[in-house]
Amino acid sequence: MELLSLLAYGDTGWGDELLRGLGVTLALAFTTAPLALLFSFLIAWGKASKNPVLRIFSNGYTTIFRSLPELLTLIIIYYQLQSIINAAIHLVLPSVSISLNPFAAGVLALTLVFSALGSEVVRSAHQAVSKGQAEAAAALGLNRRQSFFKIVLPQMWRHCVPAFGNLWLILLKDTALVSIIAISDLVRYANMAIATTKEPFFFYSVLAVIFIVLAFLSSLVQAQIERRTSANLQGDR
């Protein structure tokens, strides 16, 4: 009971701080997800391209960002981007130096990692939609863009959704890492709370519960989406 009062909303407890941290965590995940989705398709497109340079780039991109620990990618992006930006600014204004918004660095790093993972999902979904579909579309006189957006893509979603749902869960968990580069997310606020209250076990358990709830809610949404994307496969037959 005493411990629960530490979660009070307002000046006496850490409820409002944790809620603010949760907001930042969710903002990070919801900003990263659409960007990563977009880049997943672009990278997968590069892998299937006839242009060898594009193909090597896309494959290298995937290998690198799938192999590096997310923490390392995050730190490299954060510091490297900062030094590049400052070097660029120093060319114009030698006395000015800025510090990069860590949130932007977090979004960029997570986007790189998750677009690399997502491009594999897109690639295998594309393979799962049989070639005959694209050929039939071509035979009907659709151009390549029409064939992709009207015929192939709608059928790809069904194969993508479970894997993307999985990636979303991993993304939610990986946001915990951004506390390392000074983003005031859930984990960082919990660490602050622990620094004053000396109750690490309680606050980390609270974090675990919050993440479990997020995962549970996500799985409900995912089930709903899956039902919709495979609607053409259900019902009377």
């Binding site: 869960l169 980390y204 358990s205 675990a208 549970f216």
Partner: peptide
């Protein structure tokens, strides 16, 4: 275990 970040598990 699968629903919580490994970082939180390590901290815990």
């Amino acid at each position: 275990v699968r629903g919580t970040p490994l970082l939180v598990q390590i901290f815990l």
